[in-house]
Amino acid sequence: MTQGAGGVSSGGGVGGFSGGGFNRHHHHITHHTSEVGEGGGECGKRCCFFVVLGINIISFTLCIRKMSRYLRIALLWLYVATAVLTAGLLISLRILGTNKFKAAPTDMRKVETGVNNAFCESYTLKSSDPFEAFIFDKEPVVDPRRIEEFSTSYVMSLQSNNYNYWGFYLLPGSTLQVNSTNDVAASATPIVIQGDSNLQTWLDSKGDCSDCYIYKQYMLRHHSYTMNCKETDNYFFVYINGGIFDVSSTANVFIRRTLYDVTKATSACAFLPGQRSCRFDMSINLEQSLVFHSGRRALNQSIDMSGSCGARAWMYVIVFALIPILVAGSVSFLIWMFCKDDKTEEKQALVPDPGSKEQNSKLLTKNVLVAYDTCTTVQ
Score class of each variant (00 low, 15 high):
residue 107 D to E: 13
residue 144 P to Q: 05
residue 115 V to P: 09
residue 123 Y to D: 10
residue 117 N to G: 10
residue 154 Y to T: 09
residue 119 F to K: 08
residue 148 E to L: 10
residue 107 D to T: 09
residue 110 K to M: 03
residue 94 R to K: 15
residue 114 G to S: 07
residue 99 N to D: 03
residue 139 E to D: 13
residue 123 Y to C: 07
residue 99 N to S: 07
residue 139 E to F: 05
residue 103 A to I: 06
residue 128 S to C: 08
residue 126 K to D: 15
residue 93 L to V: 05
residue 130 P to N: 02
residue 105 P to L: 05
residue 122 S to P: 04
residue 138 K to P: 01
residue 147 I to G: 03
residue 153 S to M: 08
residue 115 V to Q: 10
residue 120 C to W: 07
residue 129 D to P: 03
residue 154 Y to M: 06
residue 106 T to H: 09
residue 93 L to F: 00
residue 147 I to Y: 03
residue 96 L to C: 01
residue 135 I to H: 05
residue 126 K to T: 15
residue 140 P to A: 10
residue 145 R to W: 05
residue 129 D to T: 05
residue 114 G to L: 06
residue 120 C to D: 05
residue 111 V to F: 02
residue 138 K to T: 14
residue 102 K to V: 06
residue 148 E to F: 03
residue 112 E to K: 14
residue 98 T to V: 11
residue 141 V to Q: 08
residue 144 P to T: 07
residue 115 V to R: 13
residue 113 T to E: 12
residue 104 A to D: 15
residue 151 S to H: 08
residue 152 T to F: 15
residue 154 Y to V: 12
residue 127 S to M: 04
residue 154 Y to I: 13
residue 133 A to F: 11
residue 142 V to Q: 04
residue 135 I to A: 04
residue 132 E to N: 14
residue 130 P to Y: 02
residue 99 N to H: 12
residue 131 F to Y: 04
residue 143 D to A: 00
residue 114 G to N: 09
residue 117 N to P: 08
residue 141 V to Y: 00
residue 104 A to F: 11
residue 131 F to A: 08
residue 145 R to C: 06
residue 121 E to N: 14
residue 118 A to K: 12
residue 119 F to C: 08
residue 147 I to N: 07
residue 146 R to D: 11
residue 132 E to D: 15
residue 130 P to H: 02
residue 111 V to E: 08
residue 136 F to Q: 06
residue 148 E to G: 01
residue 139 E to H: 08
residue 123 Y to F: 15
residue 152 T to P: 02
residue 150 F to A: 05
residue 128 S to G: 14
residue 127 S to R: 04
residue 147 I to K: 10
residue 100 K to L: 02
residue 126 K to F: 11
residue 138 K to E: 14
residue 101 F to I: 00
residue 151 S to V: 04
residue 142 V to F: 06
residue 135 I to T: 07
residue 121 E to T: 04
residue 145 R to G: 11
residue 101 F to D: 00
residue 127 S to C: 07
residue 94 R to W: 10
residue 127 S to F: 05
residue 116 N to C: 01
residue 104 A to K: 13
residue 94 R to A: 15
residue 122 S to E: 04
residue 140 P to W: 10
residue 129 D to G: 03
residue 135 I to M: 14
residue 120 C to S: 11
residue 104 A to C: 15
residue 117 N to R: 14
residue 138 K to W: 02
residue 124 T to P: 07
residue 143 D to V: 00
residue 119 F to Q: 08
residue 118 A to M: 10
residue 102 K to I: 05
residue 114 G to P: 06
residue 114 G to T: 06
residue 147 I to V: 14
residue 134 F to D: 11
residue 136 F to Y: 09
